[in-house]
Simulated scan of single mutants.
Amino acid sequence: MKVKKYVGKNMQDTIFKIKAELGSDAIILNTRKFKEGGFFGFFGKEKIEVLAGVEENEQQAKKAAPAGEDDQVNQAGSNRDIEELKRKIDELNRSWQQDDFVRRLDDYSQKLYNHLLEEGVKKELVCDIIEDVSSGEDNKDKLEILQSTVRKQLGEAREIEIENPPHTVAMVGPTGVGKTTTIAKLAAFFAKNPKKRVGLVTADTYRVAAVEQLKTYSDIINIPLEVVYSKEEFASTMAGDFRNFDIVFVDTPGSSWDDKLQLGRIEGILDGELLDEIHLLLSLNQKLENISKVYERFSRLNPDRILLTKLDEAAHHGDLLNIRLWCDLPYSYYSYGQDVPEDLNSADPENLLPYLLGDYNV
C-alpha cells in the first residue's frame, strides 16, 4: 500500500489533492487539524493534515507466479501491505507528535532542542529532556533545568575506592578500545601516592607486543608487572607478593564483540572471586549500534562499571546520554588522549556536561 501525508486549508481542498494523485480508490487513514504561523500560538491559520493510502498494483506479482499460486501471492502481498501500513502509520504518528511538540516550544527551548539533536542525542530522549526544560520561567532557568536533567541522565560516577587491599580491578573490552593505555593512566594516578603499592597483571598474551607495551609503562611508573596465562596463574600471583599490594590492575585480551571463542578465553582467565571490580571499556568513536553490541556481548563477563574512552575522537557526544537508555551500569572514568596519566578524568556529570553542551551561548 502506498501511504502519503497531505496538507490543505480545508478538508475539501485536501481531498481534492488526494484524489488527484492517488485516485478515487484512496482511503483516509487519519486526519488532524493544526495551526500554522501566528504569534505565540495566536492568529495562526488552521489547516488540515490527512494521511491517505491506496493499494498498489499487484498484477506484476500475479503474472510472475504459476497459475495455481495466485491465492498465495495475494495473501503474502496482503500481509506485507498490512505490516508496511502499520509501520508507516506508526512513523507518521510519531513524526506528527514530535512536530507538534517542537511547534509549541519557545525560541530558546527550540535552540536547545536543535543543539542536542546536533550532538547526536536520540530524538525521543531530547523530547523528554526539553519537556522538562520548557517549564522554565526564563532562559537562565531553562538552562539550569537542562543541566540538572542531563546530570540525572548521566548518573553519579563510581570511581575506584580501595577498601580491603589488595583491591583488584580488571579492564575488559574489544580490541583497540584502549585498555592497556587506560590501565597505565590509572596505575600512574594511584602510584603518585607514595603510601599506595600498585601492581600490574596482564593476561593479554594474544596481541603482538602487548606485554612489552605494558612493561614499558611499568618501568616508567616503577611498579611491578606479572604475566599470567591462566586462571591458576592469576590466583597464584595474587596469593604471592601481590597480596600485600593496595591495588592491582588486570589487563585482559581484546576481543571482537562477536568472537564468542575469545570471550570464553577471557572468561576462563578471570577469577571473579579474586576481582573487586570489572570495568567495561566503551569507545565513543564508534557507532552507537556497535557500542550496544559490545555492551551486550561483554555482559557475560559481569562488568559492574563503564569506562568511556576516546572522547577526543568522537565527532559528537550525544552517545554519553544515549548509552544510558539501555545501560544501567554507572560510569567510572573517561579518557581523551594518550598522555599518561593526564588524559583521564572522573566521569562525574560536571566533567561530562561541557562535552554535551559545549560553550552554548546562554
Rank of each mutant, 00 (worst) to 15 (best):
L275E: 03
K9F: 07
L105Q: 09
E131F: 06
I15G: 03
K33I: 05
I323Y: 07
T168S: 10
L263Y: 06
G41V: 04
Q338I: 00
N79Q: 13
M171A: 13
L51Q: 09
G77W: 13
G337P: 02
K185F: 00
D90F: 14
L282F: 01
K140Q: 13
T205S: 06
N30D: 15
N114I: 06
N114Q: 13
Q59R: 12
R80N: 15
E267K: 14
Q153C: 14
E277V: 00
N351C: 07
S24L: 13
G176V: 01
I323K: 09
Q286D: 09
D328S: 07
Y333Q: 07
Y334E: 05
A210S: 14
L51T: 11
E124T: 11
S218L: 01
K9Q: 09
D359T: 05
E267M: 06
K2M: 08
R80E: 15
G176I: 00
I82F: 13
I48C: 11
N302C: 05
N222D: 15
T309I: 01
P165E: 06
A314H: 08
L344G: 05
K140G: 15
C327L: 00
L112N: 03
A239E: 12
R103L: 04
E56L: 12
K4D: 01
D90L: 15
E296R: 08
D258P: 08
S292K: 08
G8H: 05
E212F: 00
R151L: 08
N74P: 02
A239Q: 14
E36I: 07
G23Y: 06
R158L: 12
Y108N: 13
A65G: 11
D90A: 15
A52H: 02
V126H: 13
L301G: 09
G272V: 00
E55G: 06
D241Y: 11
N57M: 03
V227E: 09
Q286I: 00
L281F: 00
V54I: 11
T309P: 05
R32C: 11
F101V: 07
R207P: 03
D70Q: 14
D81Y: 10
K310Q: 04
I306G: 08
E21R: 08
P165L: 00
E84D: 15
Y108I: 01
A184D: 07
I266Y: 04
A187E: 01
R243W: 09
V150I: 15
K4L: 01
L325K: 09
S332N: 05
A184H: 01
M238E: 04
N351V: 01
L143A: 08
I82A: 15
Q262Y: 07
P224G: 05
A239H: 14
A210K: 10
K111E: 12
E56M: 08
D70T: 14
V7H: 02
D259L: 02
Y217Q: 10
Y295F: 14
R324W: 07
L352M: 06
I160V: 10
Y331I: 00
E233T: 11
I183R: 14
G68Q: 11
V133S: 10
L307H: 08
E46F: 03
A239Y: 10
I15S: 03
S134Y: 07
E91G: 10
W326M: 11
S109Q: 07
